[in-house]
């Protein structure tokens, strides 16, 4: 564990707390893509299936259980508690365009052709692109609530912070995980556009609005 990975994980935790806080205080899931949130459940379930047969550390265990349960809780909030505030007509990205190719890529590019290994690889690829429905939705509406942008900034910071972690691990441990690194760089890259507007607008106290 190094400082970058710890900060990354804390940013990931923070993003989830911000999202749940937003839904509870506004009693609404407006502006949040159900599809993106459902993809995260799939990501966590396929990656953390190793909970059943591997022990890494208490930290690792607790975090995995938290990510699975909190993502399930968010789906529950969107699907039942605040269902009337979700507008499916804005959440129209076709997730099969993400799930299908990620699965095929996982079958081709993996470390070992085994069920759990392919599921792990699939989860890495899917996580990289799971934000697409959310970004697509914001592109359609052209705006986002400030709290939603804080959620996205924390979520983007999480994978961005994993990059210095991988560099650090390469120099201190000599380990490289090419699948995670390439997918992580792609994932972070998808946020660059958002980060730009977040820093130049939201952090200056303006509303998140995309140019028409």
């Amino acid at each position: 564990m190094n400082i970058f990975r710890l900060l990354g994980d804390l940013a990931h935790l923070a993003s989830i707390f911000i999202l749940v806080h937003k839904m509870h205080t506004t009693r609404s899931c407006r502006g949040i893509s159900f599809k993106t949130q459902a993809l995260y459940v799939l990501v966590f379930l396929t990656r953390y299936i190793d909970l059943l047969y591997t022990w890494i550390s208490l930290y690792n265990f607790v975090m995995k259980v938290f990510f699975i349960s909190s993502s399930g809780y968010i789906l529950y909030l969107m699907k039942y508690r605040f269902r009337p505030t979700h507008d499916p007509s804005l959440d129209t990205f076709k997730v099969e365009y993400l799930v299908g190719p990620c699965f095929v890529l996982a079958l081709i590019f993996n470390y070992r052709f085994e069920v759990t290994e392919i599921l792990w690889t699939f989860s890495i690829y899917l996580e990289a692109v799971a934000i697409f429905p959310q970004l697509f939705m914001m592109q359609r509406t052209g705006e986002a609530e400030t709290i939603t942008t804080h959620y996205l900034a924390a979520l983007g910071a999480y994978r961005a912070l994993y990059i210095p972690n991988w560099i650090y691990r390469y120099f201190t441990e000599g380990t490289v995980d090419p699948i995670a690194v390439v997918a992580g760089i792609v994932q972070t890259g998808l946020y660059l556009d958002f980060f730009y507007v977040y820093v130049t607008k939201v952090l200056q106290g303006q509303k998140f609005e995309l140019p028409a």
Binding site: R5, I56, K64, Y111, N165, D177
Partner: peptide, 10 residues
């Protein structure tokens, strides 16, 4: 198999 990274990250 030493070539496979340990999946010890989140």
């Amino acid at each position: 198999d030493g070539t496979q990274p340990a999946h010890d990250e989140l």
